[in-house]
Computed example of a mutant assay.
Amino acid sequence: MAKQISELKLGILGGGQLGRMLIQEAVNYNVSTLILDPDPDAPCKNLANYFECGSITDFDTVYNFGKKADLITIEIEKVNIEALEQLEKEGKLVFPQSRVIRLIQDKGIQKQFFKENDIPTSPFQLVNGKAELVNVNFPFPYMLKQRRDGYDGKGVMKIENLYDVENAFEGPCLMEELVDFEKEIAVIVSRNSNGDVKTFPMVEMEFNAEANLVEFLISPSTYPADVQERAEKIACQIASALNITGLLAVEMFITKNGDILVNELAPRPHNSGHHTIEGNFVSQFEQHLRAICNLPLGDTRSRSNAVMINLLGEKGHDGVAKYQGLEKIMAIDGVYVHLYGKKYTKPFRKMGHVTIVDQNREHAIEKANFVKQTLKVIS
């Protein structure tokens, strides 16, 4: 890279909590950050060197914003690809590359990529709309996912019978065999332009069944070393096949018979890596910066056991956010609170996260359960 990292203007499409935590890391390298987000009160607004309120899906807005930066990255996949492609043609660095974002924007194309590259995943079928569901030969129950724009549990539904078919999504969808899994896991892999690759240790996740969001994450995993090695090998295989520059979160299932199946990808910092800020020698956010700037990748080893809890808005609360129980949990050693700067809460909205670190795994889990029961986001 012609410029040193401290001379760069980094453009970030999206100004939510991921962008906010990326900025917090960029400050350490004196990187100037430019943010584009449609929300005038986005969490990044007061942290970025330059903030622009505008659409990240509009060609002209993204293109003109990108021209202001030396290097462009994303914190959400729902961006205007055509604008990024044009910027790349004009010599701008875009990481992850626009072709990678295009592939991952469409869950159907993503699944076909798995199949073509011998990456283990659940059986699937693509349909153009719910009218086709009546005639397909696919056993109940199955999962139905909208091919585009689904996130944080949205755009996903379980189809158990013909009645559910009648209430299914309209438009192009992906049908997936329902996986009888033992555990949901994730591996974050980083890759720079030189082709250097490093993985963070595999983590185990527990989901909020009602919101379909990660609620509880434990690192490092206690699965046998051979299972963790298989998961990390799959993540590296995908990063290599994509030829990606940046960070890639690979969400997977461990089935009850010991198979590992890839569920979905995210080409950016991810919820399954928040614990790395306190729990690992390098955080996912610093690693993303290192990767996209083609610098040596950092030490991904765990410092200690870490448990991450997503702080979600409570049911029945919609309004200005208040944090109940904050002082109680801050009195506990090893508890680190991250609030995302969102003024308003609503049910299941991601308002922050808490990481608990402890050399004793069981103690970390006990503290995490106390935090989960004590800290509430209300209005």
Rank of each mutant, 00 (worst) to 15 (best):
A2V: 15
Q4T: 12
G14K: 01
Q17E: 13
M21R: 12
I23D: 01
A26K: 03
S32L: 12
D37A: 09
P38G: 06
P40R: 13
N49P: 00
F51H: 02
C53K: 12
S55R: 12
D58I: 05
D60I: 09
T61E: 14
N64I: 08
G66D: 05
K68Q: 15
D70P: 00
L71T: 07
I74S: 03
E75I: 08
E77W: 02
N80A: 07
I81M: 09
E85C: 11
E88S: 13
L93N: 02
L103V: 13
Q105V: 09
D106K: 05
D106E: 09
K107Q: 06
I109G: 00
F113K: 08
F113P: 00
V134N: 08
N135M: 11
N135K: 13
P139T: 05
F140Y: 15
Y142N: 05
Y142D: 08
Q146R: 13
R148V: 14
I159G: 00
Y163N: 14
N167G: 09
E170P: 00
E170S: 15
E177L: 13
L178Q: 12
F181N: 02
A186D: 10
S193N: 10
T199R: 02
M202Y: 01
E206C: 03
F207I: 15
N208G: 06
E210K: 12
A211D: 06
N212C: 13
V214C: 15
V214R: 01
E215W: 09
L217F: 06
P220F: 06
A225K: 13
A225S: 14
A225F: 07
V227Y: 04
K233I: 10
Q237D: 15
S240Q: 15
G246Y: 08
A249N: 05
V250S: 04
M252K: 04
M252A: 09
I254F: 05
D259T: 08
N263E: 10
E264H: 07
A266G: 05
N271P: 01
T276Q: 07
T276D: 09
T276L: 11
I277K: 11
E278W: 07
Q284N: 04
E286L: 09
E286D: 13
Q287I: 02
L289H: 01
L289K: 03
A291R: 11
I292K: 05
N294K: 01
N294W: 02
N294A: 14
D299F: 06
S304F: 08
A306H: 03
L312N: 03
G313M: 10
G319F: 01
V320F: 09
A321V: 15
Y323S: 04
G325L: 03
L326E: 01
K328Y: 06
I329K: 11
M330P: 02
Y340V: 05
Y340I: 08
K346A: 11
K350V: 01
K350P: 00
K350Q: 07
V357C: 15
R361I: 04
H363V: 14
A368D: 04
Q373I: 00
K376D: 04
V377P: 02
I378E: 10
